[in-house]
Design a protein around this nucleic acid. Structure first.
Lengths: 136, 136
DNA sequence: TTAAAACATACTAATTTAGTAGGAATTTGT
DNA sequence: ACAAATTCCTACTAAATTAGTATGTTTTAA
């Protein structure tokens, strides 16, 4: 029930892109420095952000990253999902994984976990990057 | 963002107490067996449940555990809290711990995490053990 | 052609989670 | 009185996850 540091790093990194007024891409080195995140580690996180369609990369010298969408189109849910993979609160809710539950079919708690998960998702979807920009 | 196995174990164990019609305390060995949880491990979890005032213990032969309160008075929040300690979604929200955030005082995201936490807590408080008993 | 950037993969360290071992203390039934 | 079944206690270990490094290759602008 903890948010990983990854999610925190990614959120702050993406927020920095959102804040940028520049028309040039922002390199990882710059974000790593201003957010005190190990640069090589942040690289890896950006690749995840790219996979999840949140940022786009410009390669080569003077390259870097842009947001791929407008801040108001990027939800917290997307960012946290990029950081942690599909956000499933309980193994019960993931197909492939072994559940700790033996009586899978009529597990009494499964519906509860499912509702809990929906509750969380909806909260996360209700916030976009823009909410943080304007709050400043 | 995952519920620990502990929480799952504890929930199922406590549910089994709630279901019991007997006026005798239920020993750990019995629950361990029916729920396929290592007995010694479950012992430890029960001590946590006791600390958090969810169950009461009867020592000695023919001893075991009872729920300390009525099922409708025991919330999911209490159980998960017993399992995972204070449920804080982000280190930002815990006093003592070092935050990853450098600008602690005016961190833009803190309020978001806080609201998220409240959202989760309220959901968990809205369910009691009784909800699972009756659904059966 | 050099420098600065993204991209890729494999490794390591640190931390957390899950589980075990080996008992001591308590209580009941015989 | 004593054996058995129980909770209670502490320390240890194993497994898994998370966080971070190392060592590059590839791409592109100046």
């Amino acid at each position: 029930m903890k948010i990983s540091i990854n999610a925190d790093y990614m959120l702050r990194a993406v927020f920095e892109l959102a804040q940028s007024k520049s028309d040039k891409p922002i390199p990882i080195s710059q974000i790593a420095k201003s957010q005190h995140i190990p640069s090589k580690f942040l690289e890896k996180l950006f690749r995840r952000l790219k996979q999840y369609d949140i940022v786009k990369a410009i390669k080569g010298k003077n390259g870097g990253y842009f947001l791929k969408h407008k801040p108001e189109e990027i939800t917290m849910h997307q960012i946290i999902q990029a950081a942690e993979g599909q956000v499933k609160i309980h193994n019960c809710l993931e197909r492939s994984k072994e559940t700790t539950c033996r009586n899978i079919d009529n597990c009494i708690f499964r519906e509860f976990w499912h509702k809990f998960n929906i509750h969380i998702d909806e909260f996360l979807k209700s916030y976009t990057l823009n909410d943080f920009l304007t709050s400043k």
